[in-house]
């Protein structure tokens, strides 16, 4: 009996030590948990404007599917933006840094006023500048610039292509009469995707 008591005492000590360690483990558990859970909120992708990227894709495709008269082409393929649309400017510059149109490099220019517009193959007019459409048309008279607007009804107000949204999607209207007036040719593939207006 005396020997058993001694053994029990040893066991008791062992279990006491275990208990102490257990307490330490619980504290450890809490500390890890608190640290991790402060990071468990996801974050949305910042600084990406899908609408601007979409418009840039459309404009890039216009450069592929529209034909300009030889006389209207310059060393670089020039795309102008009239108005303040920094995200579109950024996307087009990104595109221009990696893509070419045949042997032509892309050159992107931002115009803040109508009188700054100079020769370009595509002119995109931000909706905030749409009210100046008459002056824009006068400025482009005699050129072969593809005028792209971004406001409802503007395909009938002088734009060759007007961008619009329909059922959440980016769509385009093409005015074939205006296209012809500017001596441009639109491929049948592009026409097939567009709402044709005259």
């Amino acid at each position: 009996m005396h020997g058993s008591d001694k053994k029990s005492e040893i066991m008791r000590e062992q279990f006491f030590m275990k208990k102490l360690k257990k307490k330490g483990m619980v504290a450890f558990l809490l500390s890890i948990t608190i640290t991790l859970f402060s990071f468990n909120t996801a974050s949305p992708q910042a600084g990406i404007d899908v609408n601007a990227k979409t418009k840039a894709i459309f404009i890039y495709n216009f450069s592929k599917y529209v034909e300009w008269p030889q006389s209207a082409l310059s060393e670089n393929f020039r795309i102008g933006i009239l108005g303040e649309y920094p995200n579109l400017l950024k996307e087009l510059n990104n595109m221009a840094s990696t893509k070419k149109r045949g042997f032509q490099s892309f050159e992107i220019t931002n115009f803040s006023a109508v009188d700054q517009i100079n020769q370009c193959q595509i002119l995109y007019v931000d909706k905030n500048k749409s009210e100046e459409i008459e002056n824009i048309i006068k400025k482009l008279n005699g050129t072969s610039t593809l005028l792209v607007t971004d406001k409802e009804g503007f395909a009938l107000k002088g734009a060759a292509i007007n961008l619009l949204y329909n059922q959440n999607k980016q769509k385009m209207e093409i005015n074939t009469t205006t296209i012809e007036k500017y001596n441009l040719k639109v491929s049948s593939q592009l026409l097939a995707l567009a709402i044709v207006v005259n």
Partner: peptide, 9 residues
Amino acid sequence: VSLISKMDY
């Protein structure tokens, strides 16, 4: 967003 932003032209 990624579907559109990662698209190559």
